[in-house]
């Protein structure tokens, strides 16, 4: 059992259904050359394409699991790639699954989160609001003209994740098709955020009074949270 089993199952179901419907593309072997890092300021005037503008749909989800639970290197896309976009913007969801050995969940969460936010690719500005699980990106005209694609973003993201201690595999799913498709994962994303919030509360506040805790419901149903609680109350882990 893992902390995000329910959420990962929902993601797998989405991927399988999209694949069965012929709507899923595998971008596992992206561009031969990694995309260079560089400036992350992209003003409106320089923007070729906006991804995840708050008005069109946006979702960011980060979960982790035990070793063997992620298809290492898999980058999947449901919807048009950047060069195929017909307008100036696309809805955007980015779902990341990292697998490995994470003995300290709090430290691991922070490391994984930093890896996701700090890709810093030339011509791509990425802004996120973790509490709302939204991600808002701009692709510059220069990057678009040079062929920047979801494959490049996925490859950079996975490379960044592989540098995180304990990570042995990572995969990413991107959705650019519609707000409706994105909303099919919004429940799973909200569940993941609630689990992370509950875990962070345990580590940050060291308060284990379940009677007054707003996360009592998730702690009672998710075995891994119970184990984290036990580990902390037994004094076996110290917040990093």
């Amino acid at each position: 059992m893992g902390l995000f089993d329910e959420q990962i199952t929902a993601v797998r179901r989405f991927i399988d259904e999209a694949e069965d419907a012929g709507r899923l593309r595998r971008l596992d072997s992206p561009a031969a050359e990694p995309w260079p890092s560089g400036s992350v300021l992209v003003l409106e005037e320089d923007t070729a394409l906006e991804l995840g503008n708050p008005s069109v749909g946006s979702l960011s989800m980060l979960v982790w699991a035990a070793e063997g639970e992620a298809r290492d290197g898999a980058v999947s896309l449901v919807g048009p790639d950047l060069a195929e976009a017909s307008g100036a913007g696309l809805p955007f969801a980015q779902v990341v699954i990292a697998a490995g050995d994470f003995p300290n969940e709090y430290d691991s969460y922070r490391d994984l989160r930093d890896a996701v936010y700090d890709t810093r690719l030339k011509g791509l500005s990425v802004r996120a609001m973790p509490s709302k699980q939204v991600l808002w990106c701009r692709v510059s005209r220069q990057a678009a003209d040079a062929g920047f694609s979801i494959g490049h973003l996925g490859a950079a993201l996975l490379e960044s994740l592989r540098d995180v201690p304990g990570v042995t595999a990572a995969e990413a799913l991107f959705i650019t098709s519609s707000q409706e498709d994105i909303s099919r994962l919004s429940g799973a994303a909200a569940g993941a955020r609630r689990l992370v919030d509950a875990m962070m509360k345990m580590y940050q506040e060291n308060n284990f009074d379940c009677e007054t805790c707003e996360y009592q419901d998730v702690c009672e149903t998710v075995m891994d949270l119970k184990q984290i609680r036990k580990k902390l109350t037994d004094g076996k882990a110290v917040p990093g």
Partner: peptide, 25 residues
């Protein structure tokens, strides 16, 4: 609650970007 400084800094970056009004570079 439940937001560490990095979460807050990332959120500020997002919200400030949202507060920008752009025109002519």
């Amino acid at each position: 609650g439940r937001r560490d400084e990095r979460d807050l800094a990332v959120s500020v970056d997002y919200l400030v970007a949202e507060a920008l009004t752009e025109r002519d570079n």
